[in-house]
């Protein structure tokens, strides 16, 4: 153990944290939109929407993320049509390829999580909203979606953590995020254990903060389920 070396490693790795976070936030953010679409297709009850969504989820959950990254980064360049198209400036960049692969992968997993949340909304709540005269869209926006998000949050938190971990795979297509920098230091110095300890601690810290944030959000969203705090009856003015 060499503390000076570990401190230097720490400084180098901490500089790579923004790249990791940007990858994770972009992928989870874009993935959430796609996941909601997938969940809506799955719950639509229309076979023409349900089956393609099922197939997408089956394929993306059944194959390794690394294969998906390679397929997008190396695979698409096989076609001259892609290389000469307008999207090539995006698909040429390893960063965007990693974001697209992570996004498509997380969408498959979180689509099912959101679907579970949507299915957990009690029928009575939807009926009540409709009885109040809300349109289907308004009822979805105001009643179904918030309740579904509340229900899906614990599972979604796990998915976010696995996405933070999955960003490490971006290092294989040359992106210098935490694992990429760590791998470079290891192959320069052959001090795998020290670098591993530092990099592992940084990932743990990120995931710890993330779990705390999700737990706080869960707490905030479940006020109606908690025992009301014992408060003193408020004294207002003069009683009759």
């Amino acid at each position: 153990m060499n503390l000076v070396f570990m401190w230097e490693t720490f400084l180098e790795l901490i500089a790579a944290v923004p790249t990791t976070l940007r990858l994770a936030v972009t992928a989870v953010g874009l993935g959430a939109v796609l996941a909601l679409l997938l969940a809506l297709c799955r719950t639509s009850g229309l076979r023409i929407l349900d089956w393609p969504a099922r197939f997408y989820i089956y394929v993306f959950r059944g194959s390794p993320l690394l294969v998906q990254i390679f397929l997008i980064y190396y695979g698409l360049s096989q076609f001259p049509e892609v290389r000469h198209s307008a999207v090539w400036p995006i698909l040429r960049e390893p960063y965007w390829c990693a974001v697209i692969a992570l996004m498509m992968n997380t969408a498959a997993y979180s689509g099912e999580i959101i679907r579970g949340g949507l299915l957990s909304v009690p029928q009575g709540q939807i009926e009540a909203a409709r009885a109040c005269g809300m349109s289907r869209f308004l009822a979805f926006r105001r009643i179904v979606l918030p309740l579904a998000i509340r229900q899906a949050l614990p599972g979604y938190g796990n998915e976010m953590i696995s996405m933070v971990k999955a960003t490490s795979l971006a290092s294989i297509i040359t992106i210098m995020e935490i694992t990429g920098v760590a791998a470079r230091i290891i192959s320069d110095t052959y001090r795998a254990i020290e670098v591993f300890l530092v990099a592992g601690a940084i990932y743990l810290a990120i995931n710890f903060v993330l779990t705390r944030c999700v737990a706080f959000l869960e707490y905030r969203l479940s006020g109606h389920l908690r025992q009301p705090l014992p408060t003193r009856p408020r004294v207002t003015g003069d009683s009759p």
């Binding site: 953590i161 971990k165 999955a166 490490s168 795979l169 694992t179 760590a182 591993f196 990099a199 990932y203």
Partner: peptide, 8 residues
């Protein structure tokens, strides 16, 4: 469960 498999 908190660190990437690749690192391991």
């Amino acid at each position: 469960r908190g660190i990437p498999d690749l690192l391991v």
